[in-house]
Design a protein around this nucleic acid. Structure first.
Length: 306
DNA sequence: ACTGTAACCTGCAGGC
DNA sequence: TGCCTGCAGGTTACAG
């Protein structure tokens, strides 16, 4: 699934296509994971944000009609939350012609006309610009093979129904996030440092690929349960480097991930993840695969010794 | 409150 | 060719 860089690439592509548009229709496959997609009808998208690996389409929507003979229409802030899980992808298409695609092996059908073409289509939204007629709507579609993704609709900023999002750590690329704060966050848990990174709590947006890459570059053993201030500073620095570089390259495409415009390029620059059995680029020692807390991990037994 | 494990799903690659 | 096993970028519920 997409980690922070992949979600950020998608966010940047979506923003100009969606901001200012209003959801005039929505559809979801019958599944509790995606059904919330239908609750966003009436939402006018004001901004497309990202928090960790979550996409947040924030805006305002008309409140439910009341029995009051109100003369003015009230609105409330609402957010469409999208998590792509392992295999989720988004596509945007204008009525009549395709404006983007989710993955090379998926078409991006309109939800009503071409639903049957994509067995993995889970949700779709019709989006009209305020000046558009309804028939000129744009379509956002969500496809997900493994169905590990999730769609939620929340009012305001109440993310309590999404535990990982509600407890999300600071954004790693935010300049105000200091190494000292990162180190303090890691000290709140006795889990292995890699498991902590994947938990999203000390810092947001890190998944299996970038955890392995950053720990390797910082020469930290993934299985240790505490790190020093100096190691935390090094780890945050390397995290920022690998995440920023991947965004610049359009993300890492291994299997399913693709942005709206195609595959990313960062997979050619990975020096640790997926390279078990190959030589360490620093010392030549054979990289090894281990499993920690159920997650596959690649490390250099020499550079990343305990 | 914290930790570790199983579970949710489908597709694909590799071994026999 | 076909069957079987293990593996995959994540999060969450649950037991201890």
């Amino acid at each position: 699934m997409p980690e922070l860089p992949e979600v950020e690439v998608i966010r940047r592509q979506l923003e100009p296509l969606l901001v200012g548009r209003t959801v005039v229709g929505a559809w979801a496959r019958a599944s509790p994971r995606f059904a919330a997609a239908e609750g966003t009808v009436g939402l006018t998208i004001g901004e497309v944000r990202r928090r960790g690996k979550y996409l947040l389409l924030r805006g305002r929507r008309q409140t439910e009609p009341t029995d009051q003979p109100a003369t003015q229409s009230a609105t409330q802030s609402a957010t469409l939350v999208i998590h792509l899980g392992m295999t989720g992808s988004l596509a945007v298409a204008d009525a009549g012609r395709q404006a983007g695609r989710a993955a090379t092996h998926h078409r991006a059908p309109a939800p009503d006309a071409e639903r049957g073409d994509n067995p993995y289509l889970r949700a779709a939204w019709h989006l009209a610009a305020s000046s558009d007629s309804p028939c000129a709507s744009r379509t956002l579609t969500y496809s997900d093979v493994r169905q590990f993704g999730r769609i939620a609709t929340v009012t305001g900023d109440d993310f309590s129904s999404i535990p990982t999002l509600a407890q999300m750590g600071p954004e790693p690329l935010e300049a105000t996030f200091t190494a000292e704060a990162f180190w303090r966050n890691t000290r709140r848990s006795a889990q292995r440092i890699k498991t902590q990174l994947l938990s999203q709590r000390p810092v947001a947006g890190v998944g299996n690929i970038y955890a392995d890459e950053a720990l390797h570059r910082a020469r930290i053993n993934p299985a240790v349960r505490r790190i020093t201030r100096a190691q935390a500073a090094r780890l945050l620095s390397e995290l920022r480097a690998v995440l920023a570089a991947s965004i610049e390259r359009g993300g890492t495409t291994l299997r399913d991930y693709a942005s709206l415009t195609g595959s990313g390029d960062n997979q050619r620059h990975l020096i640790c993840y997926g390279r078990a059995g190959e030589g360490c680029t620093t010392c030549g020692t054979e990289l090894r695969r281990r499993v920690f807390d159920g997650r596959s991990t690649v490390l250099c037994p020499s550079c990343q010794s305990r």
